[in-house]
Design a protein around this nucleic acid. Structure first.
Lengths: 240, 240
DNA sequence: TATACTTTGTGTCATAATAACACTATTAGG
DNA sequence: CCTAATAGTGTTATTATGACACAAAGTATA
């Protein structure tokens, strides 16, 4: 940091505003959706936008992201990570706004939406049927988030955050297929997971139309963060 | 964004300051180094810090990072990417400061250092011999950057940014070993590179002590950005 | 109660990628 | 011309992958 004067004056420089925006992913009937809010006021009134808002002076960026998320949608206690910071001059007509973007993954079933005063509506959109003319540079942010989710799927357990506590292998496989946009081989996928030692059999079965699916849960603490789970393993793993 | 009033007042909210900090990596005698500046003034006078400074109202974040980099070290035209944004309240004693961190990779040979007015000194430090008591949360930022560099090495051509235009395979291999902190098998490493089709033989040889090494350069435009180059390939590649 | 249908789950095998390591090649220096 | 040093290649066992056939366990229906 260049600013080093002993008589530092905090008001000397004009300062940008800082916001957080949160891209919220969830599954609905097996399809990947994003949560959006419809703006009430200028600028971009009536346009759809990613939920977000200004950062308070005494809260961390992640706290701000969680607060905004809850205020605007009622969603809380979710997996969240920082995505990227967007700061082009002119991206907001009001003033210079720098936006720290986060993305969140939620178990759709467990969350009830609510609309805040600040927006007309809150809605889930399938990622391949986004509304036109998003507010600000939110389309760019959204694409960025989708790309990131897709690529992190290949070496993390992120996808597990989208599922309920107990789930079947076919369900998990369908998530991967949905997000990656390609079919996976059942046998190879199951084998990979069995070898990974990430899952624990609950003993329960889930009835559907055909043969019931076995229900699994994640083993211990590997759920949190991004424990490495690759399609192609690196090195051999050491047994615990 | 929550702020939506038509009579929007840009001065209504108290605003944090926004800085950019740049972690600069370079090789010196085959070891990975980081460029640091020694602060002249309060806060953290005489402590070592990552170069950086405040973002101007009319420049993009990356422009700010490049400007600060050049001002403080004379370094320009380098590979740079955004790392992470650090914004804990209290990380700077002057005021609330949110820092967008970047990391840069430079070809050490091609750059001459210069010291700016704002610092006592500019120096390269080996990444495993960092000075104590870095300014602000710069130690955290630095570790973050090193981790990122290490992990991106495994699926990008980032390492190539550290080398001169023409280089030998042994040199490239030594970079990987230095950054990853483990020995690699020569035969396997060379084979991987030959198969990747990333390199072009210059025909030239580089004399050293033993058998001269063949010099290569990067093929066309794959140098820029992070063209995928994995240890373990994904899928089969299609021939061009 | 049998038969079709649907979905879950397993077995197998050819091919490709990886890791390990032995070997050859080309220079410099005595 | 022998040795040390470094560059570079070949070979092979093991493991991971991709493709695909097959078996298992339910529901729906005649």
């Amino acid at each position: 940091m260049t600013e080093t004067a002993e008589n530092y004056d905090a008001t000397k420089y004009e300062r940008p505003s800082v916001t957080v925006d949160v891209v919220i992913f969830g599954l609905r009937s097996g399809r990947l959706h994003v949560l959006m809010v419809q703006r009430k006021h200028w600028p971009y009134a009536d346009h759809w936008a990613i939920p977000g808002g200004f950062v308070n002076m005494d809260e961390s960026l992640e706290m701000a992201a969680r607060r905004e998320l809850e205020e605007e949608t009622g969603v809380h206690d979710v997996y969240m990570e920082q995505l990227y910071t967007f700061g082009e001059p002119g991206r907001d007509p009001r003033t210079r706004v720098i936006s720290v973007a986060y993305f969140a993954l939620i178990r759709t079933e467990e969350q009830a939406l609510q609309v805040s005063d600040e927006s007309n509506a809150v809605r889930w959109f399938p990622v391949d049927e986004l509304p036109k003319d998003l507010a600000f540079d939110h389309e760019k942010i959204l694409r960025f988030a989708i790309d990131r989710l897709r690529s992190k799927l290949e070496y993390t357990t992120l996808a597990f955050q989208l599922l309920p506590k107990e789930f079947s292998l076919p369900k998990l496989k369908r998530i991967y297929e949905e997000i990656l946009g390609e079919k996976l081989d059942k046998a190879n996928f199951y084998r990979k997971l069995r070898d990974s030692d990430l899952l624990e059999d609950t003993g329960k079965l889930l009835n559907s139309r055909g043969r019931p699916a076995r229900l699994y849960r994640f083993r211990d603490s590997r759920i949190e963060g991004d424990f490495v789970f690759r399609y192609r393993e690196a090195k051999k793993k050491d047994e615990g």
